[in-house]
Design a protein around this nucleic acid. Structure first.
Length: 482
RNA sequence: GGCCCCUUCGUCUAGUGGUUAGGACUCAGGACUUUCAUUCCUGCAACAGGGGUUCGAGCCCCCUAGGGGUCACCA
């Protein structure tokens, strides 16, 4: 019997989509697409305080940007909706009542103060795991009424079984959580709203999720959820707990580690394909050993048997390298499209399209992030440039530099257009005329034209600038010299 | 602290009892080039420690250490 493969990504709309969550989404997506299953997007918005519509929309936007699509979700509906938890409250209520009726759950009237006291007492006694003593497990009708009369509002607790709970995790293997390490936990708050460990089971169960793929920070929640499945009489899905992504300091990646939102990476000019490629290589590897992998290959090759059990540090340097590889592989027109918004935002006066593409081509093999094009191309759009570094100043101040410049200007005047080929010819003539060659010849010209001793191929730059602009910059450099 | 998970170069990883422990990023050096970058080549660099099992352990078992996670009327 082959069960339909259904996986889900279930973020809370409480902020920007985090890179760690995105990784979970990616693995779910890869698994779904690889196995011909379906990906369900579910919005876990039961935290009224922190949830927002903007966050929800941001999640859609970021997933779409990454290239992750889903088959069922709040925005597109589906057979097992609704897909927003706040729209499912009556469903949860029904199952709470059912569990209560069957005696798998019970009302607990303890106050927060009583709970604190209980916790302290347990701790003092050296009992640091289960502290709730189950005192309201078997209340009589009379006792209940007395509490209600006091105005106390009960929570609902699940009767956690007094037995080991074992399950097989697809990535971690066989796991056992010993009896006594978990107590009766709350499945519905005193205001009647259900808690996470309960709704996640109801939703996954009702939505017929076959594989729960999530971060291994959920590992210790799993026995609680299995207890709910059992109380309900439902079969639990398969679990695949993927290792966390860590920051440089080897703690779980979070806001503390800088820009960790998908949006942040988007804005910095990382390409979605590079990001997906890089993140799928965190705790997974291709059997081929290759690292630059297209989306198609990723989908084709992804398999949990090659997912490692240990956490991975997010290496921004390697991501940058990989992004550079993707940028270099882009057709020039596409790269130009992608750089355009950054250049516009910088306020640069942009030329015609073909010219712009030529300009972008100057830095194609030099970019790690799209946003870097702003800085690297500044000299092209600036009115004038000045030597940017001490080394650059030194080249301009070389004794031989003025005669190189003067010679260059004379030669430039002899030609109609200063293009790639003409420039090379002129430089040769300048060299012959002045006796200056090599770095002493090229560097001053480079600095005069671009302001720096490093940069794109000079003939290409000259080709873009044209004769008048080159002359102007050389002349300006001469003034600056004396 | 209890419980759970994890442990191969600085980082990401390959490896499933016999390998000079391989690749990638970073770094260093070299080639190409008028510079930088790209590209190519070379190099540095790892099996956490200790016990077993075995003719033989990175791979199997145990212990220790270290790291991470989780213990809410958050998700």
């Amino acid at each position: 019997m082959t069960q339909e493969i259904r996986v889900r990504f279930a973020p809370s709309p409480t902020g920007k989509l985090h890179i760690g969550n995105a990784r979970t989404a990616i693995l779910n997506w890869l698994f779904a697409r690889h196995s011909g299953g379906r990906l369900i997007l579910r919005i876990e918005d039961t935290d009224l305080e922190r949830s927002s519509k903007e966050s929800e929309e941001g999640i859609y936007r970021d997933l779409i940007w990454l290239g992750i699509d889903w088959d069922e979700g709040p925005d597109i509906g589906g057979e097992f909706g609704p897909y927003r938890q706040m729209e499912r409250t009556d469903i949860y209520g029904k199952y709470i009542d059912s569990l209560l009726g069957k005696g798998h759950a019970y009302h607990c009237f303890c106050t927060l103060e009583e709970l604190d006291e209980m916790r302290e007492k347990a701790q003092a006694a050296g009992k640091t795991d289960v502290w709730y003593d189950g005192r309201h497990r078997n209340l009589t009708a009379g006792e209940k009424e007395a509490f209600i009369a006091q105005g106390r509002k009960p929570v609902v607790r699940l009767k956690y079984p007094d037995e080991d709970i074992s399950f097989h995790d697809i990535v971690k293997g066989d796991l056992t959580f010993p009896a006594g390490s978990t107590g009766d936990f709350v499945i519905a708050r005193s205001d009647g709203t259900p808690t996470y460990n309960f709704v996640v089971v109801i939703d996954d169960g009702l939505m017929k999720i076959s594989h729960v793929i999530r971060g291994d920070d959920h590992l210790s929640n799993t026995p609680k959820q299995i207890a709910v499945y059992r109380a309900l009489g439902w079969q639990a899905p398969q679990f695949a707990h993927i290792p966390m992504i860590l920051g440089d300091d080897r703690t779980r990646l979070s806001k503390r580690h800088g820009a960790t939102s998908v949006q942040g990476y988007c804005e910095a000019g990382f390409l979605p394909a590079a990001l997906i490629n890089f993140m799928s290589l965190l705790s997974w590897s291709s059997p081929s050993g290759d690292e630059i992998l297209s989306l198609e290959r990723l989908v084709e090759e992804f398999d949990f048997s090659r997912v490692s059990k240990s956490p991975a540090v997010f290496d921004n340097e390697k991501l940058a390298w990989m992004n550079g590889m993707y940028i270099r592989a882009l057709p020039l027109s596409r790269l130009t499209d992608l750089c355009l918004p950054y250049l516009e935002k910088a306020g640069y006066p942009l030329p015609q399209r073909d010219k712009l593409e030529q300009i972008v081509s100057l830095v194609q093999d030099n970019l790690e992030r799209l946003k870097d094009c702003v800085e690297k191309l500044e000299f092209v759009f600036a009115d004038r440039v000045a030597p940017a570094t001490p080394d650059a100043v030194r080249m301009i101040e070389k004794e031989s530099t003025p005669k190189v410049f003067w010679s260059f200007l004379r030669q430039a005047d002899k030609v109609e257009h200063l293009d790639f080929a003409q420039f090379r010819k002129i430089m040769k003539t300048v060299s012959n005329e002045t006796g200056v060659m090599g770095k002493d010849l090229w560097m001053p010209v480079r600095v005069a034209l671009t302001g720096d001793i490093h940069g794109p191929d000079l003939p290409k730059v000259v080709d873009i600038f044209g004769k008048e602009r080159c002359k102007k910059r050389i002349e300006s450099a001469l003034h600056l010299e004396k």
